[in-house]
Design a protein around this nucleic acid. Structure first.
Length: 828
DNA sequence: AGCACGCCGACT
DNA sequence: GTCGGCGTGCTC
């Protein structure tokens, strides 16, 4: 960074500003500050600059100096956009660290960190604020011109406005219009985030009295028979489901909205609007002044003690152990100390439900930061954090970029969630790790919470880098579910299996249905059958791109590749030998659903997997159906393990645990344990005893034993030993990989494929690759690579190519920049 | 990220 | 003979 210049009496001093552009370019650029802006320019303020031939960008001033660049003539800054910095020095340093750690450019971090409205560029779209009532008489000439143009053409770009006004510098005008809420600024047309609402009907409790009810019916029968029908339909529905929605009632009774309105006007019905955000979490509402249970209190004391010497504490508490209450206590503590709090949640959990609960405690001190919010709202949160109006920010991963200056505590709930990691555009950061680093900068404490901690966090806790607090019992005496392991081998011998369902599972399903409770069945594969085989010649249809067997989907009658999405019509004749004896082998969610429906013709069965949730709102609709008990049994993939919590789901069936137990890489146990434990944790709520049935061919499998005892310790101790071997004397390992993608050569994105292959071995510790490198290592197929394992580093040493079959020696740093494998996460 | 320059395949 | 594909390099 350039030296700081004395900003006083600088009228005649020539200043140069080093700026960060929101682009993937390697370094910062230097612009000359016009004399008249000498006083206005400052580190952290936004400036308009021209970059390249015609593009205008918003850049952030990263440094100010007095020395003119030697090798080129600096252009002038066009404008200083802010009266005071919008980005703090702390943030700039955080960006730099992030760019370095995740191998990208600071500009890319800036692009991810700033809400779109703070980084206007010439292609940025401008539109009228649909909510604003514009008093045109108060507008200046230029503003009037813009509003007028937007009336005719609702979306204009900044460059359109440059043409419209006939002047180059339009940002001040646009900025003031944005501040006055006249216009919206956006890169794309952003959807406004609205909590989903649903209307529910309640009968006036007056009519629970038999006499009153009889009187009501007599009256209605006589004067409004349709209304009587509606009330009758309501009574019937309310016996079947706890909540009757307006839509249900209209459907069931054929009543129109007018009829329901009339009944509500007569105060026979009450209509209640409720937020539909049923995901996640302990179902009971927090009492206004809750008391911690003994277990919670012990965990809290543990955490507080650990915080005396450790920066990070992992709270490992079983599902429903009441972790949220502990977070709230800690947040209160931090607030009393006058500090800011960052509370991170995975995207899926950030629902109005959770937000409301926390708002109840912290009132207007709490801000919510979410990618689904529109940009104006995001800028508002940004500003309010900057002004200290928000003391607590509840947010998804991008909330780590907010301008905190007095952070005291970071809570990362569900820290194992993979959605904390951003994959697609750089920076490919993990918000959990970034938050740990961020907290370190402020000497703030971090609490990681999970029922199924990630490997690295548990490792760090077990080896003493993090503190560890545990809660092993559920809150309020809700008991842990009973887990029964069923040997498929044995039941097959006894001939008690009905299709894929053991007698144990069938019994439990039946019992649940009789008690009007619900069931979730977990099957780790979607589609109908993962393989189609010719019984005569053993031919199997394979994907033409990926060389994996195609999965049969009954609903589409097509064979699908689950890797690349390739699709072809299903076969009735073997293309190799002409035989018609084609057999579907294995089973997926579709088949489970089908066969269960045959066995239980009256049950209402639904399926939740990628195929049924692709449509907009399909996922939400399924959840609503489950909540409102229009579904008895839900069959699903991974998806059902994430955050679903419903009071009446008492039985969970894992159709075949074996597909989870056979991952080849060393993180297998972690993943399968997490998945099984997450699924199991969903059974039983509100005083109901839950039951988990695990069907398997390997009842003795280590991981199954650990799931039963919920024993993370045992699971990890052996893994940690294995990990230690990685750490000590450096050794080399060759990984074979076979990259067969048809397009690999054409696309040249070898590093991308390298990354895909490496991820199979090392999971998401593999990061990259970055574009500039990709183009340098293209034009050959990677056959094998040699990795060097050292204490704190795993690096790529050699790459063997297929085409010329020669070993190419790369500079480790050069190649590893394209695709690096991180050692244990260590943000310090 | 954009944009220009430059070098090889299918076309009025 | 040109148009246009994308590969490469540059932007203060």
């Amino acid at each position: 960074m350039l030296e700081f210049a004395d900003n006083h009496h600088t009228d005649r001093l020539t200043l140069f500003a080093e700026v960060i552009l929101p682009l993937a370019i390697a370094k910062n650029y230097t612009y000359r500050v016009p004399y008249e802006m000498n006083d206005a320019v400052a580190v952290g303020k936004r400036v308009m600059v021209q970059f390249g031939k015609s593009k205008l960008y918003t850049a952030i001033v990263a440094g100010i100096g007095t020395e003119a660049p030697q090798k080129y003539e600096a252009k002038y800054l066009l404008e200083v956009l802010d009266d005071r910095p919008v980005v703090t020095q702390q943030q700039l340093e955080f960006w730099k660290w992030l760019a370095d750690y995740y191998l990208c450019n600071v500009g890319e971090v800036m692009a991810a960190a700033l809400p779109a409205a703070l980084k206007l560029a010439s292609e940025t779209k401008i539109m009228l604020n649909p909510d604003g009532n514009i008093d045109r008489s108060l507008l200046h000439d230029k503003e009037f011109l813009i509003v007028d143009a937007l009336d005719i053409q609702p979306i204009l770009s900044v460059s359109d406005i440059v043409k419209l006004l006939g002047q180059k510098i339009v940002m001040p005008v646009l900025k003031s219009m944005f501040d006055k809420n006249i216009i919206h600024i956006s890169e794309e047309v952003s959807e406004r985030y609205k909590p989903r609402k649903r209307s529910y009907i309640k009968l006036n409790s007056l009519y629970n009295e038999p006499d009153m009810r009889r009187e009501l019916f007599a009256e209605l029968e006589r004067r409004a028979p349709k209304q009587a029908d509606a009330v009758l339909a309501y009574l019937k529905l309310s016996r079947e489901q706890p909540l009757v929605s307006k839509n249900d009632l209209m459907e069931a009774s054929g009543a129109s909205a007018a009829i329901i309105k009339a009944l509500s006007d007569k105060e026979v019905f009450y209509i209640e609007e409720r937020n539909v955000s049923r995901l996640y979490y302990e179902e009971f509402d927090l009492a206004a002044n809750f008391e911690l249970s003994e277990a919670q209190q012990n965990a809290l004391t543990d955490i507080q003690n650990h915080f005396k010497e450790k920066e990070v504490v992992l709270l490992h508490g079983v599902t429903s152990s009441g972790k949220t209450e502990i977070y709230i206590r800690l947040v209160e503590e931090a607030l009393h100390a006058g500090k800011q709090v960052l509370y991170l949640l995975p995207e899926i959990a950030l629902t109005t439900h959770v937000i409301e609960r926390l708002r109840k405690y912290f009132g207007n001190d709490i801000g919510v930061y979410h990618s689904r919010f529109n940009d104006n709202e995001r800028v508002e949160v940004w500003q309010k954090v900057l002004n200290h109006e928000y003391k607590v920010v509840l947010g998804a991963r991008s909330a780590v970029f907010l301008p905190f200056d007095n952070l005291g505590l970071v809570v990362v709930d569900e820290e194992h969630e993979t959605s904390y990691k951003q994959f697609d555009p750089a920076p490919r950061y993990n918000a959990r790790d970034a938050a740990i680093y961020l907290a370190g900068r402020y000497q703030a404490k971090v609490l990681l919470g999970s029922a199924t901690p990630s490997f690295e966090s548990y490792f760090n806790a077990r080896t003493g880098k993090f503190g560890l607090a545990e809660i092993t019992e559920r809150f309020g005496g809700v008991s842990l579910p009973e887990i029964e392991v069923v040997s498929i081998t044995e039941e097959t011998k006894k001939k008690t299996m009905q299709s894929h369902f053991s007698s144990v599972l069938m019994n439990d399903i039946q019992t649940a249905l009789t008690n009007k409770e619900q069931v979730i069945l977990f099957q780790n594969r979607r589609g109908y059958a993962p393989v189609l085989v010719c019984r005569v010649c053993a031919f199997t249809p394979k994907c033409i791109n990926c060389d994996v067997s195609l999965t049969y989907h009954k609903s589409s009658a097509h064979l699908h590749c689950h890797y690349c999405g390739y699709k072809e019509e299903s076969l009735s004749v073997c293309p190799a030998c002409g035989s018609t004896h084609l057999e579907y082998k294995g089973f997926g969610t579709e088949k489970i659903e089908d066969e269960l429906q045959v066995l239980l013709p009256d049950a209402r069965i639904a399926r939740m997997d990628l195929d049924t949730t692709r449509a907009r709102n399909a996922y939400q609709n399924l959840l609503n159906d489950l909540e409102e008990k229009r579904i008895d049994i839900l069959v699903g993939t991974q998806m059902v393990a994430k955050g679903l919590d419903f009071a009446d789901v008492t039985v969970i069936g894992i159709i075949n645990a074996d597909s989870l137990l056979k991952y080849p890489d060393y993180r297998a146990n972690e993943r399968s344990f997490q998945m099984l434990a997450q699924v199991s944790g969903r059974a039983g709520r509100r005083g109901k005893q839950g039951k988990v049935v695990i069907q398997t061919y390997n009842p003795q499998h280590r991981v199954i034993g650990q799931v039963i005892s919920n024993d993370y310790k045992e699971l990890y101790l052996s893994e940690i030993d294995e990990r230690k071997n990685f750490k000590y004397p450096p050794f080399y390992r060759i990984i074979q990989m076979d990259i067969k993608h048809k397009d690999a050569e054409k696309l040249h994105y070898q590093a991308e494929y390298l990354a895909v292959e490496l991820r199979k071995h090392f999971g998401d510790r593999v990061i990259g690759p970055e574009y500039p490198l990709v183009s340098r290592i293209r034009n050959f197929y990677i056959k094998s690579i040699m990795l060097k394992f050292e204490k704190d580093n795993i690096s790529i040493v050699k790459v063997k190519s297929v085409i010329r079959d020669v070993i190419l020696q790369f500079q480790t740093t050069q190649l590893s920049k394209g695709c690096i494998i991180q050692p244990d996460v260590d943000p310090y």
